[in-house]
Amino acid sequence: MSTIISVPAGRCHRRSEDSKWVDPSPEKGLLEMNLEDDLLHLWWKSRVTGSVEDELIIFPGEATFAKVDQDPSGRTHILKFSSSDQKYFFWFQRATSAGDVRVQVDVNALLQDPSYRPGTAPLPIPSTPQQTQERSWPPTPGAPRLSHPEPAPRAPAPVAETPTQVAGSSTAAAGGMDIDEGHVQQEEMARLLVEWAQHGGLGSVEEDARLTDVLSPANISQLLKTHPDLASSLTPLLPPGLSLPSNPTEQDLIPILTAPQFTDAIASLDNALRSGGLPGGMMRELGLPESAGTSVKGFLEGLIGLNKPEGEGASDDRMDED
């Protein structure tokens, strides 16, 4: 004996012997179908007592299983025999109704053919996501409908107009309504910013140098090789679990400081400085002027300023030696 289908479902009972009304019973149960000695068994099992009730043996084609259209929730289904006037009502108790159609199709297909494999029959209506139906306004050219950076697989293919023409979308979205629009505007904003930056932006504030290029792995290696004494001050800043020797040398640290995670951290600092800056207090703690927190340019200039003119050439380990 093998269970082919088991789906959380409750029963519905007629209000009275010949009432046209049926009411769902709250008791939790399972609607199950099994094949036993080539005979299809269908039963309802209480999930409270575990006991099987309403066991039926159904011959192929003898009964159908269909949704009851009168129930606005769409979850009530009827098992109807063609050979008699027996009728049984069930309501699906799964947490969401998303899979109800599939269950209905499978149960019904099994009733017609016990060798049917659940999940293989086509669904009656193609499962179009609701959003596409609700969206009546024309799709925005070039702006794929994504609510976040991960692509949604059902995003309708954008119409094949010039994909760069985002500016045109502002008119399309002007009368707009839903959350996607915010994204479109954000994209447009980002694009305008890029264009603005490409045309020089604020000029003096815009900095061509990226921090990841300034503190590149090559420059980090170079720094440590020429100043091996830095190792002792850098080590306490690093996390445990790096399998470092107790007094790591610059040779031990270089592979760690040039790991991609550092490049990411430097990139995020670059990003923070470009998009709003960092608190001046933070810069002061670092021994930099407060203006260093306002932009990448300010930050770099602050760093250059750390090298006092008189310290040139002898700035390494010996300070204030006179």
Binding site: N219, Q222, L306
Partner: peptide, 14 residues
């Protein structure tokens, strides 16, 4: 660590 590296670069005149 990143700040320390930047500072060292600055202080060492690099």
């Amino acid at each position: 660590t990143v700040f320390a590296l930047f500072k060292a670069m600055g202080e060492k005149g690099l």
